[in-house]
């Protein structure tokens, strides 16, 4: 069979893998939902959580589609579709593909037609290099969770602080990242302000949503405050970028 990066058989193979992963998500959703009902959680509460998660996911998922389009120029559609539905991200896949192509004397972004051998080599580099999390969670996940339960039993207050501190630590790293080009502002390069202002807009929208909930008791606003702040923040990036670029 003649090879092409957009061969129908590649779509079929990628589709099978994506279907299995979709099956895993559906399986865990049903399992958690049943458990939630069994321990007396309100069905409408579970429904609200699911709807908010779905709404919140739309914008980042569209960004992932853009990543598929970006990678498809070199790798065809099926491989980026598979890689970005399972484990991957644009930055990782780009680095892995660049390294694999460079090892075979190719330049990422300038490949007109891959051979089957090159394609298989790239897929193997991408797959093997980022597999750790998939098998390591089964190996150490239970022990980590047991450790947390022991912590909870020993010292409940510290366990709560521990959990909050982990979340705050993660958020702090990303808040720092927003300022990574900020030093350029001191040299008159205002582009470094763009992410900072976008973050400020998003934060302001969230504060406004909090104030509205507190004043008018509009519960639905608190459910959708994060997706709303995300979208308004993203939209604000368009005039802010035009202004500062």
């Amino acid at each position: 069979m003649e090879f092409s990066v957009n061969s129908p058989i590649l779509f079929l193979l990628a589709g099978i893998v994506v279907a299995v992963v979709l099956g895993q998500s559906v399986y865990f959703l049903i399992k958690a939902w049943r458990r939630g009902k069994a321990i007396g959680m309100d069905k409408s509460k579970l429904k609200r959580i699911a709807v908010t998660a779905a709404v919140f996911t739309v914008a980042p998922a569209v960004a992932i589609v853009i990543s598929v389009i970006t990678l498809a120029k070199d790798l065809g559609v099926p491989l980026p579709w598979l890689r970005l539905s399972v484990v991957g991200s644009l930055s990782y896949e780009t680095i892995a593909a660049t390294n694999a192509e460079s090892a075979m004397g190719l330049v990422f972004g300038q490949v007109s037609e891959l051979t089957a051998t090159q394609y298989v080599t790239i897929v193997l580099v991408m797959t093997i290099s980022i597999m750790v999390g998939i098998w390591l969670v089964p190996v150490i996940g239970r022990k980590l969770q047991s450790g947390l339960i022991n912590l909870e039993n020993r010292d409940k207050k510290w366990s709560d602080i521990f959990s909050n501190a982990m979340f705050i630590g993660m958020i702090a790293a990303f808040l720092g990242y927003v300022f990574c080009d900020f030093s350029g502002v001191f040299k008159g390069e205002l582009q470094g302000l763009i992410p900072v202002l976008v973050m400020a807009v998003s934060a302001l929208v969230m504060c406004l949503a909090g104030a509205l909930v507190a004043k008018f008791k509009w519960r639905w606003i608190s459910d959708y405050a994060l997706p709303i702040s995300l979208i308004i923040g993203m939209v604000s990036a368009i005039p802010i970028t035009n202004w500062l670029s």
């Binding site: 973050m199 998003s202 990036a237």
Partner: peptide, 13 residues
């Protein structure tokens, strides 16, 4: 620009 600024928009809120 909107898609380039997803992370700041997300972590602001």
């Amino acid at each position: 620009p909107a898609f380039a600024q997803i992370l700041p928009a997300l972590f602001g809120g």
